[in-house]
Simulated scan of single mutants.
Amino acid sequence: MQVTPLNTYARLPRPYRAMHPVHSTIDAEGRAHWLLSERPPSAGNAPKSDGHEPYDALVVTVGDGAPRETHLSAVAHPRGLLEALPDGGFVVAGARTRRTAPPGGQVQVFDALGRASWTFDVGDAVEHLLVDAGGDLWVGHFDENPEGIRRWNAWGELLWESGDTLPGAGWIMDCYALNVGRDAVWACPYTEFPVLEIREGAPVRVRSNDVSGAKALAVAGQRIVFFGGYGGDADRLVVCATTGSGVEPVRTTRAVRPDGGRLGRRHVVSRDERVYVLEEPYSEWYVLDAGATFPAAL
């Protein structure tokens, strides 16, 4: 199988690499953010009966000039999911509500000065959490919570939900892939792996899809590129052309590191035409730009 090298995108500056990465993300403007702590995420701080004591953390932002630091106070989640808000603040969320301390504090909102401001819940079993350009939170759940895909504002108000079924899409049991773009949100859920196109004020458009198990997807014009799959297909890239009712595979290749090596354990973020890949030890982001890598004429 042919291979497609990813490109280096953003690196955590070396002075911060002595700290422990809790989570990292790419925001709607393409900036990289790392949530760092002095202790390993598995340790947290001194444990108590219902979770972990809050701890102070550092967010390092790379991508718009010199690296920027934001010190967060009283972070509740030792393995929290980080997302950036457009006003300079951040959210840190626990994936599981049963591990949240205190109750009702699954999503913590921090202002631009790093102060914990308020909390709310978005439901158990969070697989994906991405903030859009307007500051709303898109949440996709895994199979222990049949809530489908939901959109919340930063104050904890539920704005939209797919439900556990959609006409033409079947049962939305597990949100395998979620792409939060500038003008649309795309998703590929288990069990039938349809491609969902979600736009403000319009019915969800459903396209049939035979590519199973992808963990990320990039959308560039009439092309969709799926990244990942089951077992030996973890590094698979499937380039598809969209039709009125479905997507048709036209090329399959395999993603590799910029130096040509196999990818290790990774975290992925999908936004518009790009899939961002953060490989362990989680200090360097790679990128696949579907529009640039796979031109319209294949």
Results as ranks from 00 to 15, higher is better:
I149N: 00
G105E: 14
F110S: 05
A76F: 13
I172N: 03
A101P: 00
P102H: 10
H128P: 08
D143I: 15
G181T: 08
D121L: 03
V180I: 10
P189T: 15
A125P: 04
G156L: 07
V180D: 06
G148L: 07
A177G: 10
D183N: 10
R96W: 14
H128Y: 05
P103L: 10
Y190D: 15
R98G: 03
A112T: 11
C175S: 12
I172L: 15
L166G: 06
D174I: 09
G134R: 12
A154T: 12
G148F: 08
L129Q: 05
D111M: 03
G105C: 14
P189H: 14
G163F: 08
A95H: 13
C188Q: 14
A84S: 08
A177V: 10
P167H: 06
L178C: 09
V139G: 05
C175D: 03
Y190P: 01
H141P: 07
L178R: 05
G156M: 00
A187F: 09
Q106D: 02
H77Y: 06
F90A: 11
P78G: 01
D111I: 07
W155V: 15
N153H: 01
P86E: 06
V131R: 04
W155A: 15
L159K: 11
H141Y: 15
M173R: 15
R98Y: 10
G135S: 02
V122L: 04
A184S: 13
V180M: 07
W138D: 05
P86G: 04
W171A: 13
F120Q: 03
A116D: 10
V122H: 04
G163I: 05
Q106R: 00
G135P: 01
R99M: 12
E144G: 15
E83D: 13
S117N: 07
A177L: 11
L137P: 06
D174V: 10
D87I: 07
D143S: 14
L129G: 04
A101V: 11
V91D: 00
L159R: 12
N179Q: 09
A93M: 11
A112V: 12
R151W: 08
V131H: 00
E161N: 10
V126P: 01
A154D: 14
E144P: 00
T119S: 14
W118C: 11
P167L: 09
R182G: 02
R99K: 13
L178F: 08
Q108F: 04
E161F: 03
M173I: 14
A154M: 08
E83Y: 01
E83G: 14
G181Q: 07
G181A: 09
L166S: 03
G94L: 09
H141R: 07
G148S: 10
Y190W: 15
P146G: 09
G134C: 07
G163W: 09
C175N: 06
L113M: 14
Q108L: 12
W160K: 06
D132N: 10
L137T: 07
E161D: 12
A101Y: 13
E144A: 15
W152I: 08
E83T: 10
D87R: 02
G89R: 03
A76S: 13
G148E: 07
